[in-house]
Nucleic acid binder design. Structure first.
Lengths: 240, 240
DNA sequence: ACCACAATATGGTCAGACCATACTCGAAGC
DNA sequence: GCTTCGAGTATGGTCTGACCATATTGTGGT
């Protein structure tokens, strides 16, 4: 009999408890990237749980990209705190796409949104630091060159991905950049197929140059427009 | 001695192998949400590995929100495939924020981007199905009422979060909605503090109504503008 | 001073046991 | 026949203790 609103009685598995305590320690002790966590055996003993439970907690943290484990001895061994959300996000997207809990259309729309924003932001940043002289578009130019030299759709997409991720990096927002990388990662096969269907990539090249120049010229609106039209060219079936 | 380009020799842990095989089976057998995975003991035997390794793989899948485990017997027991990326994303953001691998500024900027897009998209959708009569803004109105009745900043933020997540839902993009939910989740404390600092929430209320009406009226540009100005009101220190 | 090798600390894996949970099914009682 | 209760059983959750692989550290001999 339930339904009386009596008790959810949240039973928490012990590895979740371990997880919570590790997170608390990170916050309270101000641990940060590069710091080491205690060894699994020590943690198990100090927390009064089995090593298996500690290991499951470690597996979760590793999956989320906050620790990186290394066997052996010395300063580099053990569980070290890191901050690499990229692969975690990629795994997440890939698996959920595989379960059709998400559709490619949604991924592409999200990418459209992010990339317009990132390009505009990158252009703004380029404009405000024009005096410093440092062109942040060397990576973009290199990616364009890579696409020119590509001998296959796979290779083309490789450099195309680098180009668009560089735009996200240039926005200066690491969260947006991480999301962008994982989006591109999970779109790879789809992009290769799109390029193959397209055949001629000269239109895409012109788009890329236009985007690059808009960013370099510090024109956010033009950058966003250029990105939008570029995506319409790359995925003509999706944007009517 | 290395540098000869000899050997990366990728050593793959056995639980990673288990993961790969599970993912392959999901793809090949066309498994989808609701389907069950074999029991841990069976998987271990069939794959010729220990149950611990299978469990670590399961923990990863659970962390990423693609399986949900339930003890006991019957159709609901065991590892069932699901697709709940929300808590995975929230955990990811929370932990990386805690490690200062990300800064709140980046989170808020990302939210700004997402919410402008989602509001505009929601308005467009509302316009195109205006004939069907179904106003998709009942949840939005309910959230506004909840904020009116709120007795504390915490309670206010609770309903405010519901309001803004409902906008993301109304965009029809589940990926964007999931990202939005996790962003709000990791911003909660920060938002409560912002509301407390603000004191008077009447400006926010007017903003909310304006956003709601823009979406209902099917005006994407106005919806995006309204969202943008709303965020400037809510976080005056961040937007100059 | 150098080198070879043992000691040690760490994560990775395994085997086997036990517990808690929750369904299944059959026997007992009505 | 129907209900009810309890044994059976399949499942995840946890623990123990062992062994292996790896990589640093210490030590002793040359």
């Amino acid at each position: 009999m339930d339904g009386t609103g009596w008790r959810p009685v949240k039973r928490t598995r012990t590895f979740e408890d371990v997880l919570a305590q590790i997170e608390r320690r990170i916050a309270e002790d101000g641990l940060t990237v590069g710091d080491r966590l205690p060894a699994e055996r020590h943690l198990a003993e100090q927390l009064g749980v089995s090593r298996s439970s500690v290991r499951e907690a470690m597996r979760v943290l590793e999956t989320l990209g906050v620790v990186s484990s290394q066997a052996g001895r010395g300063p580099d061994a053990g569980a070290v705190l890191t901050s690499r959300p990229d692969s975690a996000l990629s795994d997440l997207l890939r698996l959920h796409l595989g379960l059709t809990g998400l559709e490619m259309r949604e991924v592409i729309d999200t990418r459209h949104m992010i990339e317009q924003w990132a390009a505009a932001r990158a252009a703004t940043r380029a404009a405000t630091r024009a005096a410093t002289g440092g062109a942040a578009t060397t990576e973009l130019a290199a990616a364009v060159a890579g696409m020119d030299a590509a001998g296959s759709p796979e290779e083309f997409v490789e450099h195309d991905t680098a180009f668009h991720c560089a735009i996200a990096d240039a926005s200066g927002n690491r969260l947006v950049a991480a999301i962008m990388r994982s989006l591109r990662d999970s779109m790879r096969k789809y992009s290769v197929e799109a390029v193959r269907r397209l055949g001629d990539t000269s239109v895409l090249r012109a788009d890329h140059v236009r985007i690059l120049e808009a960013i370099d010229g510090g024109d956010p609106e033009e950058a966003a427009r250029a990105v939008s039209e570029h995506l319409a060219h790359a995925y003509p079936t999706l944007f009517r």
